[in-house]
Write a protein that binds this DNA or RNA. Structure first.
Lengths: 221, 221
DNA sequence: CCGTCATTCAATTATTCCATTGAATGACGG
DNA sequence: CCGTCATTCAATGGAATAATTGAATGACGG
């Protein structure tokens, strides 16, 4: 806590935030917390990690002002401290997408193979939904769907998509979304639907971005 | 390079970018490089750091796709790889400003003491300049001014502000800017000008943001 | 083709970060 | 007021990061 010039002191603070974003597990935690408030053990289960490890990463995120903790019952619920966290995440992602060849390689090797089409934008989706032209499916697990989803969306967790798609008439387009722009589940869903001859596309990103854009969110189920 | 799921692979890439932003020296490097392309030794001199140390930090930034290097003569010039780097920096800064109490403490303890007024926005400045109501000064060192400045600005490096202000008539407002929103020099300039009875305010942020906003930039001197 | 000099590499030490384990905390429900 | 259980703390070992030093690279100018 030595006295140093204020610029350095500020930059140290900014670095704390960036450093907290600088670990893949913590980024994944942010993605999950962005779906809604969650307890430590729920997050640990979702990431298949020991509880103590998750707890420590959450504390790192909290020290950086990225998430906030609130006790309810015997659980501590973590949620995003600020909507600006999502834009910081998006900005970092943007740099990586534009500049890192490895990102390009991963996207081409995996994601393009499952959906090489341009995703549906939020604006497009609103029009399509208003005119009743598409079926919108939310492929996240039921608990995340319950915490908030796009109005009119049907919850079809990825594991149930095969059974669900058996009853669907060919011709009507299906739009799928999940947790965010690179959430694997919506890519898998689109690939599965196409493989049985259905027309399917992804929404450009997921629930947190929809909400952050100020669009309506439906709760419970 | 083991085979793991694509989501983790992507998040590792995003983490590389964030991690590169997670060190105060590297953030300061970005601020300087944003003023214009610079050699390693020039940056080392500006930050008062050994050349080898700066070289290694620059390579970390380059691996993260944040800066790019180009050889010219016997110097390697580093510049920002992408305009999106500035928005990532700004987003991280935004989280810190909103959520970290320590940032508030530093700002109140140092910056507010020198300028407790609302800064001038870019739009305001354009109006004031067009109507000829203010004198605009760029308080950065001459070399940075030469690499690009706001049209109509006068270069008054911080060290010369006392001499310069002696000849200025009271009454006409002065607007000062430097490298970015928390660049210390413009705060110091405003404080110095006010202490001799002149009306002075800061621009809301600095040269890189002006340029990133698509506004005109004047070169050379 | 050789010397110069900006830059990078390599090696070292100190520090910080990360995952794991098991124990401690502390709020709730009875 | 006590047991339960989600969460946090503390301690360990191993890995990555940072600063420093001095040597090596390698492109340019002659």
């Amino acid at each position: 806590m030595s006295i140093r010039n204020p610029k350095q002191a500020l930059y140290e603070q900014f670095a704390i935030v960036a450093k907290a974003l600088g670990h893949p597990l913590r980024l994944e935690l942010i993605e999950h917390i962005a779906q809604g408030a969650r307890s430590v053990e729920a997050l640990a289960a979702k990431l298949s990690q020991p509880v103590a490890n998750i707890s420590q990463h959450l504390q790192a995120l909290r020290r950086a002002g990225i998430v906030s903790a609130e006790r309810g019952g015997k659980f501590v619920h973590y949620s995003l401290a600020d909507a600006s966290v999502l834009s910081a995440f998006a900005a970092v992602r943007g740099v990586a997408e534009r500049q890192l060849a490895e990102v390009d390689r991963i996207v081409r090797g995996y994601f393009d193979a499952r959906d090489d089409m341009r995703p549906v934008t939020r604006e497009e989706l609103q029009t399509l939904m208003r005119d009743g032209l598409v079926t919108l499916i939310d492929v996240r697990p039921a608990d995340e769907f319950a915490l908030g989803h796009v109005p009119g969306a049907i919850n079809v967790p990825l594991g149930e998509i095969k059974v669900w798609s058996a009853d669907i008439a060919v011709g009507r387009e299906i739009v799928a979304y999940c947790r965010g722009p690179w959430c694997v589940m919506s890519f898998e869903a689109v690939a599965a639907l196409r493989s049985v001859g259905l027309a399917a596309r992804r929404l450009e990103d997921g629930m947190p971005e929809w909400k952050a854009a100020g669009l309506p969110v439906e709760m419970a189920g």
